Simulated assay, not measured.
Amino acid sequence: MTESAKHSVSVAGVIVNDEGQVLLIRRRDNGHWEPPGGVLEIDETIADGLQREVFEESGLSVEPIRLTGIYKNMKLGVLALVFLCRIVSGKLALNPEVSDFRWARRSEIENLMTATFARRVTDALDGDRTASVRSHNGRNFV
């Protein structure tokens, strides 16, 4: 018998402003642009973890509107849940994890982000449809 599989679960919020632009954070550790998010704690609900992570990385309180995608990094065993969110309150604030913010147009997404993160954002922007379910190897979808 093999040991039970273990996965890390992350959450991310795709936040769109009134001009249709998406909030991206620039991570301090690798310089990459991504939607705000992070790893769920064992003892928190998905919604609570999403709200905590978005607040920690942006200073914004959000409300999830809908689940837009489920993504598995096959190499790292990370399952990511991505939600379209609306801003409830707050003000953008830099922090130890984030070096910059940017409101990006859809046409800029693929040039700013890795393919796997760009797909998460574009999936969220693609209207009211069933959540996407995709797997990738950390760089490309499989």
Score class of each variant (00 low, 15 high):
V82R: 03
L84P: 02
A118C: 10
P35Y: 02
I70H: 08
G69W: 05
E44Y: 09
A80W: 03
R120L: 11
L94F: 06
L67C: 08
D100V: 05
K75A: 13
N111A: 14
T114W: 09
D43W: 10
N111D: 14
Q21P: 04
L23V: 04
E41D: 13
L76K: 14
L84Q: 03
E19M: 05
V14S: 03
S107G: 08
E56M: 08
Q21M: 05
T68H: 06
A104G: 10
S4G: 14
T122E: 06
E44P: 11
I25F: 03
V98Q: 02
H136A: 07
V121D: 00
A12T: 11
N140K: 15
H32F: 15
H7S: 13
V14E: 02
V22C: 02
S10R: 09
R52T: 10
V88D: 07
L50Y: 03
D29H: 14
G20E: 07
I109K: 03
L84N: 02
G49M: 01
A131N: 08
V22R: 00
R134E: 15
V98N: 02
V142Q: 05
A93C: 12
M74K: 13
R105G: 11
R28G: 10
L81H: 02
D43N: 07
D29L: 11
G37R: 01
V82M: 03
G69H: 04
L94E: 08
G49S: 04
F55M: 06
N111G: 12
K75C: 09
A93G: 10
M1I: 14
